[in-house]
Amino acid sequence: MKQDYFSANNIKYIDYKDIEILKKFMNPNGKIMSHKRTGVTAKNQRQLTRAIKHARFLGLLPFVVK
């Protein structure tokens, strides 16, 4: 079973400004990957989703990649 990326790297707070990390959890179309693919814990998946949505709002990440 895949280990949680955030607990493995000792990340306690997922920041919306860390776009390089957030991009790892998005598919080529810009959609957020499911927790089944990411292998992230439910708590971190919620934080991750929130961070990506905040980054999208501020134009750091795209909503859709065509």
Binding site: N9, I11, Y13, D15, K17, D18, E20, I21
Partner: peptide
């Protein structure tokens, strides 16, 4: 809302 500590991990 956030925490005082540095949150940027990269």
């Amino acid at each position: 809302k956030t925490v005082k500590e540095n949150t940027i991990a990269v």
